[in-house]
Design a protein around this nucleic acid. Structure first.
Length: 931
RNA sequence: GCCGAGGUGGUGUAAUGGCAGCCACGCAGGAUUUAGGAUCCUGUGCCGCAAGGCGUGCGGGUUCAAGUCCCGCCCUCGGCACCA
């Protein structure tokens, strides 16, 4: 084997690693641990694409590096295998999802192993394995058993929930209902995304622009009884603890925005209805909220209360019926009906123009006693705040639009500056747009002159004093809709008690722990039932059970795909444990995950859900750290190769520039790369050089036909080249286009590295004659130590691309040498080994290594060997480089200045001018400021 | 609209405020080769024969010195989107 044959080398070392279990992670608690985690994939039928190995290669390089630095590295892989595609496939073909899933997993495993990643395969997990989802179900039961103690800010067992005396006195079922109302996992009637075409409920993230992600079927909102998880109880802690993790700021921002904390006040507006007005107004706040006497609103700008000229209720608000006057009843009913029929999509998309209807009722503005009309409009959401707002059109964009549409009064209460009025061409009585900034109050009675922040505090206190309002914090985050009407998911371990007639009593019971896992029933027909029970309801023998002599009906919903991925990082720590989800001793040792790498598409949901579950487990004492993932890095998207297009209009090709901005519609046709000519910054078509082409990179997709399969790349260039190219493309976090030419570039580099060491002309792999046991010359020594330093620092900073270019420079230095010192090459091979492990192992062996290099100590660099004897430094005159001088390294400022002034070119430039200032950066440059 | 990231050669990219373009791709020339491929060497930001000038999205500013810091715009991408 004279030349570099990746296929042979890679097969050989993959076999070696597998047979020797080189990357098994022993639970050696005496060594420092490093837990490095990939986001595990959903094994789709299409197999891996080149985007997957990007993150996996990065983590593998770090895992291998950390091992060489003496860490006990935990680096596992598994499968997030429940979910819709396998089920859809089952519906179409009749193949059981278990079988498709197994096939897909086998494909993914083969492909991932082909890339030579150093996973500990003994720790592989599969979310659809009963041994795994037993514990998903167990965690669900923990959530079911937990209530959130707002005083202690901590989840506690339901057994510890204090039962109020009046509840206790009403008996056992009242107590049970009270407990059920506090559990983190609870059932509730909520509006869901119902897709009639698919006959199932969809998650929000499965609905795109009001249509189903699969098949683009219409989705409507419909109230259904669903399982919910009370993630909102943890909202505050989910925000606060972002400050203790090392995550990219944009991701933290996205999570904060998603949770959407806002601080404001709830204010009660008394209804102007003769019957109840007086009798209710004396009631203490809190009790009154359920009565008819007032409407409660939420506002972040209580300082604009004096400018509230009307109120708006969501069409679904529970008081709409009661307050609507007989004259308005028909109009209100019609509006409510229309609103309920609209999908969320229509409600937002068509809401460019504000709509609404007057209820005929009035309320009293608590700060000035003025009557304000009450409207309903779908721009107010029932699900946020109190479902009702006070409208301050002068200082709120939406209220302003609405007020304009319906000719409602607009009353400014924050001082408008002259400049602003001028700029917006407004007058005090006639604003052209709302003023939404903070400012100083006016038109606000005794509060005139107060700045916004101070006003907010004062007015809130004033309202509290009168029992009319209180400080309030709201979140955009909603409780997590946790049930799906699907087959291929974890069944809920919950039983519904039946009475003698076979009707549910409303009493729920957890499946006893010893009966877990609760596996899925065998079904022939996986189709959605079209009813809220889901397909599991069809398995009658499965759904009906008797426990302790009582008949029960099993819960027939299944959990969403997020469930299994919420905690897989915990199972890796002790994947075969049958007595617990993991041994606490091991959990304490390996947690938290030191580095978590994955796509930014999981920036919010998966990471938020996972953190939530982790916090519950933390509160309940199962894990010892409040956050699961210490450091997070998002790998960027890999786009398809650059492609060139010509624009065709009515069969004629025209230049790219002629289409843009002229409202013309053209058909874009692909132009092969060899028909592209570069002229300046533009591209032209060789078949008609007057035609300018456009160039573009797109996301890889089947429909565009630009998907690159790792299988093909590995077949042609080998896994090491694929790995290296994935890292050489650019920064890990960046979005970047694929290029086969680029793969070839790194392939050539590996070939050059190979030829440094291996005798090309021999039949067997043997050391090249040029490699000898000699001491390295000074230059080589310096280059080597520079390379060690750069690679080490770059690995530390996850700058894999620059680490590779440093190694390329080293190889470029070594290539022309007739005699190459063996010790330098051994060091180089160690540096290369995390990146191109197969090739490195082979070269290590050729250089005399007895066994795997996976646990060889990482090379150290000697700072004293880094510095060259002399350096070239630029001499600038007024900031422009005019000369270069060569000076001994470490020369001081004064000497450098002297050397610069002695230079001929400098002398010439200085003729007839005087030096005003001299700046010397030792070892870097000299700048002479002359006049 | 709001939040965030980013605009550097023909391409991917690199540069603790200190010589812009490291390392690659591509291209050009040369060596080797029957030829092709592979390999090796040299050159390659733009304009210019050259001297030199101009160059990091655009316009200002700070500084001896700005791709990097500050202010104002433009464009691309990602996320959120009537959340009061």
């Amino acid at each position: 084997m004279p030349s570099y044959k990746p296929q042979a080398v890679e097969a050989k070392w993959q076999r070696f690693w597998e047979e020797n279990k080189t990357f098994r992670t022993p639970d050696d608690l005496s060594k420092p641990k490093y837990y490095i985690l990939d986001m595990f994939p959903y094994p789709s039928g299409a197999g891996l694409h080149v985007g997957h190995p990007e993150g996996y290669t990065a983590t593998d390089i770090l895992a291998r590096w950390k091992r060489m630095r003496g860490f006990n590295v935990l680096h596992p892989m598994g499968w997030d295998a429940f979910g819709l595609p396998a089920e859809q496939y089952a519906i179409q073909t009749g193949t059981h999802p278990r079988i498709t899933t197994q096939n897909n997993i086998n494909t993914f495993r083969r492909q991932i192993k082909m890339l030579g990643f150093s996973y500990d395969w003994d720790r592989e997990v599969d979310t659809t394995d009963p041994g795994y989802f037993k514990w998903t179900q167990w965690i669900f039961l923990e959530l079911y058993d937990t209530w959130y103690d707002t005083e202690a800010k901590k989840g506690r067992s339901i057994a510890e929930l204090p039962i109020p005396a009046d509840v206790k006195s009403k008996g056992e079922s009242a107590v049970r209902a009270y407990q059920d109302s506090k559990r983190l996992a609870y059932q509730a009637e909520v509006p869901v995304n119902w897709c009639p075409e698919l006959g199932t409920v969809l998650a929000n993230e499965e609905v795109i622009d009001g249509k189903s992600e699969r098949g683009s079927h219409p989705v409507i909102r419909m109230p259904l009884k669903q399982w919910m998880l009370r993630i909102t109880d943890y909202a505050e802690r989910l925000i606060d603890d972002l400050s203790v993790v090392n995550w990219p700021d944009p991701i933290k921002d996205m999570q904060r925005n998603w949770i959407g904390k806002s601080e404001g006040a709830e204010v009660d507006f008394e209804l102007q209805i003769a019957d109840c007005k007086l009798e209710e107004s004396s009631k203490p706040r809190g009790e009154r909220s359920e009565l008819l006497g007032s409407i409660r609103v939420y506002t972040t700008r209580p300082d604009t209360l004096f400018g509230a000229t009307y109120m708006v209720l969501a069409p679904e608000h529970r008081l709409v019926e009661t307050i609507t006057t007989p004259e308005q009843r028909t109009a209100v009913k019609e509006y409510q009906l229309a609103a309920s029929r609209k999908s969320d999509f229509e409600r937002t998309e068509l809401a460019k123009k504000k709509t609404g209807v007057f209820t005929g009722a009035y309320a009293i503005n608590p700060v000035n006693g003025e009557n304000v009309p009450i409207w309903i409009a779908d721009y107010v959401l029932a699900s946020y705040g109190t479902g009702a707002i006070m409208a301050v059109p002068a200082h709120d964009e939406r209220d302003f639009e609405f007020a304009q549409a319906f000719d409602l009064p607009i009353k400014p209460v924050v001082k408008l500056t002259e400049a602003w009025l001028k700029q917006t061409k407004s007058t005090l009585d006639n604003l052209s747009e709302p003023y939404c900034e903070e400012g100083v109050a006016f038109n606000s009675g005794e509060f005139d002159g107060l700045p916004t922040a101070e006003f907010k505090t004062k007015i809130t206190a004033w309202l509290e004093g009168k029992g009319l309002g209180t400080k309030k914090i709201n979140y955009k985050l909603r409780d997590w809709l946790f049930s799906r009407q699907r087959y291929w998911g974890e069944p809920f371990p919950i039983l519904h008690e039946l009475d003698a007639k076979g009707q549910p009593t409303g009493v729920k019971r957890a499946v006893p722990i010893q009966d877990l896992p609760l596996t899925l029933p065998v079904l022939e027909d996986f189709k959605p039932s079209g009813s809220p029970e889901g397909p599991l309801a069809k398995a009658k023998e499965w759904t009906h059970v008797t426990l302790d002599g009582k008949p029960y009906l099993r819960e027939t919903n299944t959990m969403p795909q997020w469930a299994g991925s919420c905690w897989y990082y915990l199972r890796y720590i002790d994947p075969r444990n049958e007595a617990a989800f993991a041994d606490p001793k091991l959990l304490n040792h390996y947690l938290p995950v030191d580095l978590y790498v994955g796509g930014a598409e999981h920036a919010v949901l998966h990471l938020l859900y996972s953190r939530f579950w982790h916090k519950v487990l933390f509160d309940r004492g199962y894990v010892n750290c409040p956050e699961p993932f210490k450091r997070l890095v998002n790998q960027g998207l890999i786009l398809g190769q650059i492609e060139y297009y010509r624009d065709v209009i009515d069969g004629e090709t025209v230049s790219a520039g002629e289409v843009e901005g002229k409202g013309l519609v053209s058909e874009q046709k692909k132009v092969p790369e060899d028909e592209v000519e570069v002229r300046g910054k533009k591209f032209f078509w060789t078949k008609d050089p007057t035609i300018e082409l456009s160039a573009r990179t797109d996301k890889m997709s089947k429909s565009r036909g630009n998907v690159i399969s790792p299988d093909d790349v590995v077949e042609e260039y080998g896994a090491d080249s694929l790995r290296l190219y994935e890292m050489f493309m650019g920064p890990l976090e960046a979005t970047k286009p694929w290029s086969m030419r680029g793969v070839e570039g790194v392939y050539r580099f590996l070939n050059r590295a190979w030829r440094l060491i291996v005798d090309e002309r021999a039949d067997e792999v043997r050391l090249s004659d040029a490699v000898q046991d000699v001491a390295a010359d000074k230059e080589t020594e310096r280059k080597l130590h520079q390379t060690i330093k750069r690679v080490t620092n770059d690995l530390d900073g996850l700058s894999f691309n620059t680490a590779i270019s440093a190694m390329m420079e080293f190889v470029n230095h070594m290539t022309p040498l007739a005699v190459r010192p063996k010790s330098s090459l051994r060091t180089f091979v160690l540096l290369l080994s995390p990146f191109a492990p197969h090739l490195a192992e082979e070269m290590w062996q050729t250089l005399g290594g007895a066994t795997t290099l996976a646990y060889e100590p990482w090379p150290a660099f000697d700072e004293s060997l880094l510095q060259a004897d002399s350096v070239e430094v630029p001499v600038q005159i007024n900031g422009k480089v005019r000369a270069k001088i060569v000076v001994p390294a470490g020369l001081d400022s004064a000497a450098m200045e002297k050397a610069a002034l002695a230079d001929e070119k400098v002398q010439a430039q200085l003729a007839g001018k005087s030096i005003k200032k001299v700046i010397v950066v030792p070892g870097k440059m000299v700048n002479l400021v002359v006049g």
